[in-house]
């Protein structure tokens, strides 16, 4: 062990190459993508709601990356099409998440666009699904004797409603729901969306070629 210089240079070169191919090159490739056509930047309320989403750590249980048909039945669950890089253009940091303790939320605004449902569910998930293990978020709401004008009253079944007065959503809850309602990914993905299609498209293309060959015979 007396030739430190070549050793250090080789080690650094390997590290540099890995960084180039795994970090810098994909970063440039994705950076050149820009936002998907059809994706809108966040409104002010949505951006505030996103901050609430981040601060409450929703991503520890909810992913934001539906898989393609070839990999998982996410589309059949109504979780939307497989996402592409451009879908996250306005997310910094993105909230991809890896855990699916709860359902994927990338397309929640299409699947559950109801503000009323979202508020009830945030206040007490068990009011809707008795088996739900999602935490309740009572601190996003306020117990009032009477709703003031402009207040959004949470719809609750008798078992979960307060004995007197009403439950009213605080601004954080309204913003969070606005953010969730805005999570719509129904638009068509760009053609060069850097998307993993699994083998489905290739298989379809090969099938087409064999069909064409058969037809010409």
């Amino acid at each position: 062990m007396n030739r430190y210089l070549p050793l250090a240079i080789t080690a650094l070169a390997i590290l540099a190459m890995a960084t180039l191919f795994l970090v810098i090159a994909p970063g440039m490739q994705i950076g050149a993508q820009g936002p998907s056509p059809g994706l809108n930047p966040y409104t002010e309320a949505e951006a505030r709601g996103r901050d609430v989403y981040v601060s409450m750590g929703c991503l520890y249980c909810h992913s934001q990356q539906p898989r393609s048909i070839a990999q998982a039945p996410d589309a059949e669950r109504g979780w939307g099409r497989a996402s592409v890089a451009g879908d996250y253009a306005y997310d910094n940091p993105h909230q991809l998440g890896t855990m699916r303790t709860g359902p994927d939320l990338m397309d929640i605004g299409d699947r559950l666009p109801s503000q009323g449902w979202q508020l009830t569910h945030l206040y007490q998930p068990r009011a809707i699904s008795s088996w739900s293990i999602m935490p309740a978020y009572p601190y996003l709401f306020e117990h009032k004797d009477k709703a003031d004008p402009g207040d959004v009253v949470v719809k609750l079944p008798p078992a979960y409603a307060p004995k007197t007065g009403v439950i009213v959503a605080k601004q954080d809850a309204l913003d969070l729901v606005t953010y969730l309602q805005g999570m719509k990914r129904q638009y068509a993905p760009p053609a060069d969306g850097l998307r993993d299609d699994g083998y489905a498209l290739i298989a379809a293309e090969q099938q087409k070629q064999t069909d064409a060959a058969k037809a010409s015979n």
Binding site: R77, D110, R111
Partner: peptide, 23 residues
Amino acid sequence: EGTDTVWSCASCHGEKGEGLETV
């Protein structure tokens, strides 16, 4: 608009009852 306990139909099923995704 729904009732005091129940959400409105249109809030999920759409104003024209056309649905979306699993709705």
